Amino acid sequence: MPYLYINQEAESPKAGGIEFSLKPFSEDAYIYRFYLSEAAKNVQAILYDPDTLLYKSKLLMLDDAEQGMNEGKLDKKLIPESGRYVLLFTVQTEDGHYETQEIPVDFED
């Protein structure tokens, strides 16, 4: 009788499709979207200067994020000024592990 026994999980990204863009027909709001492959205890998105890596702003802090597509709106005041930044996107899984991605982003006026 054939059978399969799996004792480990495959390593795969916990978050993908991360987007931050100006909300259509709006001048004072941005929208964010990202996909989670599993529920997360905590999700953060923090902006850093790409040249000096100095902290600029915390864009997002979500507790108990759901598995699947997550979307929302951000106030444009959270963006220090238009330009290029490094976005540090961190997911804390339910079992306490952290996964971080560095993403270059451009914000326009």
Rank of each mutant, 00 (worst) to 15 (best):
Y48T: 11
E27T: 15
S21H: 03
I31P: 04
Y55C: 07
E38R: 09
L36M: 00
Y30E: 01
R84D: 10
K56T: 06
N70R: 08
L78Y: 08
D63K: 15
R33Y: 01
L78G: 08
K14L: 13
R33D: 01
L62N: 10
K23M: 14
D75K: 13
A29I: 03
Y48L: 14
D49F: 07
D95V: 11
N42C: 02
E71W: 07
L36V: 08
L87P: 00
K14A: 11
L60E: 09
H97D: 10
D64S: 14
E94Q: 15
P13E: 03
L60G: 14
G83I: 11
V91Q: 01
Y85I: 03
E71N: 15
Q92R: 12
Q44C: 12
K73W: 15
T100Q: 13
S57N: 04
M61C: 08
P104M: 03
E71P: 14
P13L: 04
K14F: 09
G83H: 07
A39C: 02
L87G: 00
D49Q: 12
N70E: 09
L47I: 07
D63L: 08
K56W: 04
E99I: 10
E38I: 06
F20A: 01
Y35T: 14
L59G: 13
E38H: 08
E94D: 10
E66Y: 11
L36P: 05
R33M: 03
E102W: 01
Q44V: 10
T100M: 09
L74P: 06
Q101S: 09
I103Q: 00
Y30D: 02
K41I: 01
V91C: 04
L22T: 12
D28R: 15
T100N: 08
T93K: 08
P24F: 04
L36C: 04
Y55M: 01
